[in-house]
């Protein structure tokens, strides 16, 4: 492939796909975490706060 030796191609070709895949996975994971955190903050805001007693 691309006139590269087989070992060079298979050692090097997967890296960009691996990093992009990992970035998408982390994006989705962090988005879920942010949404869960947002819900927690909303629930706390709606409940009794120390200031309001």
């Amino acid at each position: 492939m691309f006139n590269l030796p087989t070992d060079t191609f298979w050692m090097f070709a997967p890296w960009p796909f691996f990093w992009l895949g990992l970035a998408f996975f982390l994006y989705i994971k962090l988005k879920k975490e942010d949404e869960a955190e947002e819900r927690l903050i909303q629930n706390t805001d709606e409940g009794s706060s120390p200031i309001e007693g």
Binding site: L20, L22, A23, F24, L26, Y27, L30, K31, D34
Partner: peptide
Amino acid sequence: KGAILYAAT
């Protein structure tokens, strides 16, 4: 999360 996507691309 957004920074990860921008940086990866």
